[in-house]
């Protein structure tokens, strides 16, 4: 099965809504490639997305796709995974979805460590509502509600994830889909919560953080001598270093997943339990009230 799949097996017939040149195309291409190379079967993939330009992505990946309400993709996905541990659960959403309206859930999903992959498509703006500041917009970014420039310091989502206990942290750039696909594959293989933040330029509204700007302002962790993904302190230092933006896998750690802690191992998925007939053992529960 695994050897016969190609990215096309994960394509849908739905035409994309994204603007030509949108960074999200790179994310979709990398995601399909990763799914194919991992040999995932579309019916065993639950792909949950948030709201915004990025959230549209769930319509373009052949899978069980779920496009819920703004900011709540992570709790939805956590429950999908708990309900059926046989599924590969992938979540995708934007910087606004994950770091603003969904920020509370983000921290708690991270600390629970469910076995899933979270792709944050970061374009540093609210594209679908025409270019307002987002939680990752740079200070001074001029936008509708901020004609004098964004007064709010940008959020460092990956540093927050590390502080909250993330067990796999990576950053990719949508102009480098091959590296991104590798990172997504690593995140999916990682037994726990894997976050891949993708620099995904908005060509229509964000005239500051353009492809050109990114190319001049990124570097690769591979180029750092002696970088060790098990070193949490170094990961934090690297993530919070001012200046150029590092790409690559920052950190990985193995600790028990939410499903292992809550459900144990070797048990059938909850979704497969036969509930059509009432367990006769339930009758004994009434004795405590007799």
């Amino acid at each position: 099965m695994a050897t016969t799949l190609t990215p096309k097996d994960f394509a849908t017939a739905t035409p994309s809504w994204w603007c030509a040149g949108c960074g999200d195309f790179g994310v979709l291409a990398a995601l399909k490639q990763a799914c194919a190379e991992l040999g995932l079967e579309p019916h065993k993939v639950a792909f949950i997305s948030g709201i915004g330009c990025s959230g549209k992505i769930s319509g373009y990946l052949h899978s069980y796709a779920f496009h819920g309400v703004h900011g709540r993709a992570l709790p939805t996905a956590t429950a999908v995974k708990l309900a059926n541990t046989d599924l590969t659960v992938i979540v995708a959403g934007g910087d606004g979805d994950g770091y603003a309206i969904g920020a509370g859930h983000f921290i708690h999903a991270v600390r629970r460590n469910p076995d899933m992959t979270y792709i944050v498509m970061d374009n540093q703006t609210y594209g679908l509502t025409k270019g307002q500041s987002s939680p990752t917009s740079m200070l001074g970014y001029k936008a509708g509600p901020h004609p004098q420039g964004n007064p709010d310091a940008p959020i460092n989502g990956l540093a927050i994830a590390l502080a909250a206990g993330a067990t796999f942290i990576a950053r990719a750039f949508s102009s480098e889909p091959k590296q991104m696909a590798e990172m997504i594959k690593e995140a999916v293989r990682h037994p726990g919560f894997g976050i891949v933040e993708v620099l995904s330029p908005c060509v229509t509204f964000n005239k500051v953080n353009t492809y050109k700007w990114f190319k001049e302002n990124v570097y690769h962790l591979d180029d750092l001598p002696g970088y060790d993904v098990r070193d949490r302190v170094r990961a934090f230092a690297t993530l919070t270093q001012p200046g150029k933006i590092p790409l690559g896998i920052f950190y990985r750690e193995i600790r028990p997943t939410l499903e292992e802690l809550m459900l144990g191992t070797g048990r059938p998925p909850i979704a497969s339990l036969p509930i059509e007939t009432v367990d006769p053992g339930l009758a004994a529960l009434q004795d405590a009230y007799a």
Partner: peptide, 29 residues
């Protein structure tokens, strides 16, 4: 004991969306 699980969510927004997620995946929630 009957194969189920219970999550204490971070807020009610999470609680309702978790309930929907589990139901979407085929579990009575």
């Amino acid at each position: 004991r009957y194969g189920g699980t219970v999550v204490q969510a971070e807020d009610e927004l999470a609680a309702i969306n978790m309930t929907i997620g589990a139901a979407y995946a085929g579990v009575r929630a």
